[in-house]
Design a protein around this nucleic acid. Structure first.
Length: 489
RNA sequence: CGGGGUGUAGCGUAGCCCGGUAGCGCGCUUGCUUCGGGAGCAAGAGGUCGCCGGUUCAAAUCCGGCCACCCCGACCA
């Protein structure tokens, strides 16, 4: 029966570990509708903090929030050829309203390019109206065949940025800037290192000229596409007649970009930092930074310990890892549950720091702090415990990123690599392989067919091998690019 | 849509071959003892056995149909 409380381990079955952890840590559940997810307060708390920080970052780069409708006339989706081809198979369509069959079916947005650029067309007349920098927080629906909590659900919450610019160069700059914002957020806040780069033609967004992405490595060595940024060129502007008068007085189509991240990042967080005891949440994103577990035997001890716990809690407000916030601290004063059981529960939920305080500590003027990431347990003097907590939170935030990056690098393969060796890697433990590619879609397709690995991106220079491969992994022809290959979610 | 599997209490399951009182663990309720790593004992509550039909004196169990969900593929943030 003690066994029933244990999670499956990551080594046994990574999928089972993930699924059970997400449910047991009370992050999310499946809803009665197939493939739809309910995000519980625990999971939403993490998402809410992600949301708030990203929103601040978008504001800082000059974007404003707006909101566009959930329902899109089907004909809008059909105006951009590649776009409709990419999204039509996975849309949900409303055919009836008010008890009557609709003249034109309405698509539940799988993404909002069409409705947004149709409105942009009305708002933009002159180059003086540009750039137009908009973001929306919304839900979208994509009728996926197989779903997994957070990683792929029929409906998901996300943010989609949409911009219009007067020049191609400005649009490209915006596309890259927002990719950088995502990277800063993922590394700085989620402590999840990412490889940035450009998508291959076959993997790019339906309707984009160029797609860039952030690719993270999960603990099973698979890649997770954690965020994308698209340069849409004038494709949508032409489809929706989004034109403007230039400084020279000529009429031109605007240049668009779109970029998005979703609740999928919560899944990425779990699969990046979680361990066999449960979730590990980076202090910057943890809804609770410190949990106090009071320990007592007698009523007299109980009163003393709880009084001390409250006093400690009240005195620590200024020691949050975010100096502009109050320390998020919680006292677990539930009766009838032994301290040991509380430890397991808070570990499962990934709270960064646990403070144990009992009669013996009070005598000694100390409290015990336990770090979630390293599990190191140590006593600290009460007079200076605020500073100790702050140091530990900062250290943990840093340690999580470094650990994840070291793990990624030790499972990355660069330089000359034969196709046989590549297959061996992909059939075995998996990993990120940086290898030459001739640019042919045939080679790309054959590798996917034979190994299940796909081109995640053509990585940005800083991620590339010191000496770039000269030959294509598959056909041995001259390589035109270095591609990052991995199995992916 | 192809291949495999499962539906029994809030959760996890036994029973099904071989028809005859629906069982166990976790959780829940109450009480006492516990409390520095998942508490112990005692008493209790909780079930249209996925749905519809058939066979039978009798169906969770056998037969037919339907539905739902899960896993493996194809599709994907």
């Amino acid at each position: 029966m003690a066994d029933e409380k244990k999670l499956p381990t990551r080594a046994q079955d990574f999928s089972a570990w993930y699924n059970e952890l997400v449910v047991r840590a009370e992050l999310a559940d499946y809803a009665p509708v197939r493939g739809c997810m309910v995000i519980r307060p625990n999971g939403y708390g993490i998402w809410e903090r992600m949301q708030r920080q990203l929103d601040d970052m978008f504001k800082a780069t000059g974007h404003q929030n707006a909101y566009f409708p959930l329902l899109i006339p089907q004909s809008y989706l059909q105006k951009e050829a590649q776009h409709v081809e990419g999204f039509a198979p996975e849309t949900a369509v409303v055919t009836h309203g008010g008890g009557k069959k609709l003249d034109e079916p309405l698509v539940i947005r799988p993404t909002s390019e069409t409705i947004i650029y149709s409105m942009f067309a009305k708002w933009v007349q002159s180059y003086r109206d540009l750039p137009l920098l908009i973001n929306q927080w919304a839900n979208v629906v994509r009728w996926e065949m197989r779903t997994r909590l957070f990683l792929r659900t029929l409906e998901f919450l996300w943010q989609e940025g949409h911009t219009a610019h007067a020049t191609e160069a400005e649009a490209e700059e915006e596309t890259r800037r927002m990719l950088g914002v995502y990277r800063d957020f993922m590394e700085g806040w989620m402590a999840m290192p990412v490889v940035t780069g450009r998508k291959s033609e076959s993997e790019k967004f339906a309707g984009a000229v160029r797609t860039y992405s952030c690719e993270a490595m999960m603990q099973d060595n698979k890649a997770l596409q954690a965020g994308t940024s698209h340069n849409l060129g004038q494709n949508f502007a032409k489809a929706f007649e989004l034109t403007f008068q230039t400084e020279a007085g000529e009429l031109d189509f605007a240049w668009n970009t779109s970029w998005g991240v979703s609740t999928r990042m919560v899944g990425g967080l779990v699969m990046t930092h979680g361990d066999d005891n449960g979730l590990v949440t980076p202090p910057l994103l943890a809804p609770i930074e410190v949990v106090i577990v009071p320990i007592y035997r007698t009523d007299e001890d109980r009163a003393r310990v709880l009084e001390a716990a409250n006093r400690i809690k009240d005195s620590l407000g200024s020691y949050s890892i975010r100096s502009e916030e109050r320390l998020r601290i919680h006292i677990d004063s539930r009766e009838g549950i032994k301290p040991g059981a509380k430890y397991y529960e808070w570990e499962l939920r990934g709270i960064p720091l646990r403070m144990e305080i009992g009669p013996r500590d009070l005598e000694a003027g100390q409290a015990v702090l336990v770090r979630r990431d390293t599990k190191v347990k140590k006593a600290y003097a009460l007079e200076t415990i605020g500073a100790s907590i702050n140091e530990l939170l900062v250290a943990m935030q840093t340690n999580l990123l470094e650990t994840a990056r070291a793990r990624r690098e030790s499972n990355s393969f660069r330089g000359a690599i034969t196709y046989d060796r590549f297959r061996e890697i992909m059939d075995g433990a998996g990993g990120f392989v940086y290898a030459g590619w001739c640019g042919s879609e045939d080679c790309e397709a054959r590798i996917k067919e034979e190994t299940k690995a796909t081109i995640r991106c053509l990585p940005d220079e800083e991620f590339r091998s010191a000496e770039e491969p000269t030959k294509c992994l598959m056909c041995g022809e001259r390589a035109v690019a270095e591609a990052l290959w991995a199995k992916a979610y």
